[in-house]
Design a protein around this nucleic acid. Structure first.
Lengths: 363, 363
DNA sequence: TCGACCTAGTGTATCGATATACTAAAACGA
DNA sequence: TCGTTTTAGTATATCGATACACTAGGTCGA
């Protein structure tokens, strides 16, 4: 690979001049000189070494992205949007890491980022404790955290970008209530993201508004480590068992996310229950999978692309080392996509509900 | 952040000695000196700057990973395995890039890797032309290509790791034939990975062996750019239409992968056909999603973890710049997982087939 | 007691690019 | 014509770690 010295020699100028060309200080030279340098760059296929540059400037065009597991389609989706936008808009590449929700792995990722000179990170974490993020900021990083909100009343140097989880869950719950459901449940797993509590609040708020608070339960499917993979079907199965054995089972279920909804549907089916005839389910996320499941899943669509862009913009706009006050950005425009997984409860529609063709299943 | 000079000062030794400690040359000093340096490292929380180190050694502990789209659950799965193994086994971090099956994006990713000093890449590409990979090798990279085989009779500096696609498709097809299917189809999309042709050969070979060659067709669902996402349901829908309008429709379908199978099931369902009663489907990949779909999908499981490890090992074992001859590694141990999406064809079992409880759906 | 050899280190050029400080030559103004 | 700007560059210390080449001082054998 050719270096800046090769180019300088080839163009018969000093390395300084080549550096000036590279950094847009073209006003300091004649047209002809500029042309000669550019020709040399092309001829030698020269690309400045990012490392050497970084060593001097202290900046490297790399963005860290920390996810619990990239095998989870939701995180894969977010990661794709983040990578694409960071690349096209800022010329940044993405360094990815799976944490498996493990404290040590997360910390070690930050260490490595620091050693690599990476100063901007987007974190999707489920760890309750966010202090390690604050520490990273102290060490000069720009940190953007997804899917959780800043601790109220507490200053933070970490930017937060999150969907309006409260509203999303409320929307989902209201939809079930509008279809006549009076026995509601919120299905989740232990060890999930902190955003869960906002969703639970939204769920309970909607139930409360309809006077159904007494019939609204939160069901916990047990611990979940490698979140988002095969484990999910196990959790769904476990939850389905809980419901089947319930003397007064819920008829309308809000799932903490689409994957949970899918796992739940599989579990219910194994237990001999039909969706939506026996039980209605609403998911959250709006994964493409929700459109092709059977039955297709009614879900709350999150603005993934917009959130990804906002995260990248935040990570880029802040100056490294320049800590500012708490700042959060909440994305409200979640909307419900009606599909086939919701119908009136059994009592209302006498056994087999009006489960006909999908009405709005397009796209 | 503290530097090697800070440590040297703190321990009252030269930077050389600190460097010696860092690089395991501890035989050149007294126990006491070593202890003092180590204490200084701990006290100052010193981590050597990878960039400066790389600039000198020409090695950076980074692995490039190129995928068509990380939002595709299959690539997400592979990426997770690759990242985890590279990290735990070699301390390497992963730089990821989405190519959207675009020539220019792929080339630009290689350029950036080179500029970042990255010398090892794992590529999951669908581009027919692999010459840009060869060129990268010429420029000093170690390239491992997934899911395709070396061009026979041609020397290559690119390592190939691939499942035995021929065998996988043959396995899937035989399974359908064993259930009595005589009208077979292979469902794929245009612009898919090159591995497709191996699968098609496997499909046709199995059909031929059973004397069904005349009734075995390859159905192409049209172009597919952002492979693996929502688009898939569209392709499935299109293929389902093709099948419905067929005067003599196939009853057993082998899908090029699980996602295609899932999209196809959705399309068939919309067209009013039941799986497996009217049509049987076998997928390939063994995504966790195949276990929770409705009906759950009979599929050929690929040894993803093993392949990911093999790819990382290959990428690490070869010395950068040390081009060797063509080398490929084919993973044969694919196996069929029987689930619910296959039943005897309609004629054989009179309308509604023996679609009872799953027999082997566990796991 | 001298030279050879070993022990336990150290000095510094180097990797590739940057940017500050510097300058030779030309142009300009009075 | 001389001093001042401006133009069009150049020389080099620097970023942080590495490793080769070197050495002060001690030990040992003859």
């Amino acid at each position: 690979m050719s270096t800046i010295q090769d180019v300088a020699r080839h163009a018969a100028v000093s390395v300084s001049t080549v550096s000036n060309v590279l950094n847009g200080r073209t006003d300091r030279m004649r047209q002809e000189t500029l042309a000669r340098v550019e020709a040399a760059i092309t001829a030698l296929q020269f690309r400045p070494n990012t490392l050497a540059r970084q060593l001097k400037t202290g900046q490297t065009p790399l963005l860290g992205l920390l996810v619990p597991s990239i095998a989870n389609p939701m995180y894969g989706y977010i990661a794709r949007e983040v990578e694409t936008f960071a690349q096209e808009q800022y010329g940044y590449r993405v360094l990815i890491g799976n944490t498996y929700r493990d404290q040590d792995k997360e910390a070690s990722f930050f260490e490595d980022l620091l050693a690599h000179g990476v100063r901007r990170v987007i974190v999707i974490s489920s760890l309750a404790d966010e202090r390690h993020l604050e520490r990273a900021v102290q060490r000069g990083m720009v940190v953007v955290s997804y899917d959780r909100r800043a601790t109220p009343g507490e200053l933070s140097d970490v930017d937060h970008v999150t969907p309006d989880n409260f509203e999303a869950a409320r929307l989902a719950t209201r939809h079930l209530i509008a279809h006549g459901h009076t026995h509601l449940a919120f299905a989740t797993a232990a060890g999930m993201t902190m955003s869960r509590s906002d969703k639970i609040r939204g769920f309970l708020a909607a139930a409360g508004d309809a006077g159904l608070r007494a019939h609204a339960r939160v069901l916990d499917g047990g611990p979940l480590n490698e979140y988002g993979d095969a484990v999910l079907s196990e959790v769904g199965r476990a939850l389905a068992q809980q419901m089947v054995n319930d003397p007064e089972p819920p008829t309308g279920i809000v799932a903490v996310n689409d994957l949970m909804a899918l796992g739940l549907m599989a579990g219910l089916r194994e237990a001999g229950l039909r969706v939506p005839e026996d039980m209605s389910i609403v998911g959250m996320d709006g994964l493409f999978l929700s459109a092709i499941s059977n039955p297709s899943l009614t879900t709350v669509q999150l603005p993934v692309t917009e959130m990804a862009r906002a995260m990248v913009e935040r990570a880029m706009s802040r100056q490294s080392g320049q800590a500012s006050n708490a700042s959060e950005l909440v994305f409200t425009p979640t909307h419900l996509i009606e599909r086939e997984s919701v119908a009136p409860p059994p009592g209302r529609a006498r056994g087999r509900a009006t489960a006909t063709k999908p009405q709005k299943a397009k796209r």
